[in-house]
């Protein structure tokens, strides 16, 4: 059985690789069937919103296209705490809920500000030798992201 520590480290490693803009390294942690989404609830329109949704290939395209776009180059840091890990009976998956805070650090002077808070809802595949992400929902509480950002959280 894959120990909980390996599942925790998968979540942490995924954030560290995104922080480092090691996008291919991040995708190596994802199953071929990986799905990624950013969602939020808008009290203003009383609706669930999807702000970003990609499969693994779509996410790779997004990463590959980044150099072609003009972007805010301020680095972001994802602070994650794994809250719960629940293994699913025979499915060989685990559902992981983590707290997420995203900080942005200005290039000029290095001031760090809180950018967003939310949770990560991950599904981790456990039936291979190595745990892999098969689904990640970044569930944001923060809905005001200023000028926005090109790199998914």
């Amino acid at each position: 059985m894959i120990p909980k520590q390996s599942i925790d480290e998968l979540i942490y490693r995924s954030c560290m690789r995104l922080d480092a803009k090691d996008f291919s390294g991040f995708l190596e942690l994802c199953d071929p069937a990986f799905r990624y989404s950013v969602t939020a609830f808008s009290p203003e329109i009383r609706k669930e919103m999807i702000w970003l949704e990609h499969d693994k290939a779509g996410l790779k395209l997004l990463f590959d296209n980044l150099p072609r776009h003009n972007s805010d180059h301020s680095p972001i840091t994802r602070h994650v705490t794994v809250y719960t890990v629940e293994r699913e009976g025979d499915a060989g998956n685990a559902r992981v809920v983590s707290g997420l805070q995203v900080f942005k650090t200005a290039l000029d002077g290095g001031e760090t500000t809180l950018f967003a808070v939310g949770k990560l809802y991950d599904t981790v595949k456990l039936d291979g030798g190595t745990p892999l992400l098969v689904d990640r929902n970044v569930r944001l509480d923060t809905r005001m992201l200023g000028i926005g950002y090109h790199i998914p959280f």
Partner: peptide
């Protein structure tokens, strides 16, 4: 429609961030 919107206009969209920048 949501996918079309998000590609360029969502908070993580390709164009909106550039315009706001």
């Amino acid at each position: 429609r949501i996918r079309d919107h998000n590609t360029i206009w969502g908070p993580f969209g390709r164009n909106l961030h550039e315009d706001l920048l």
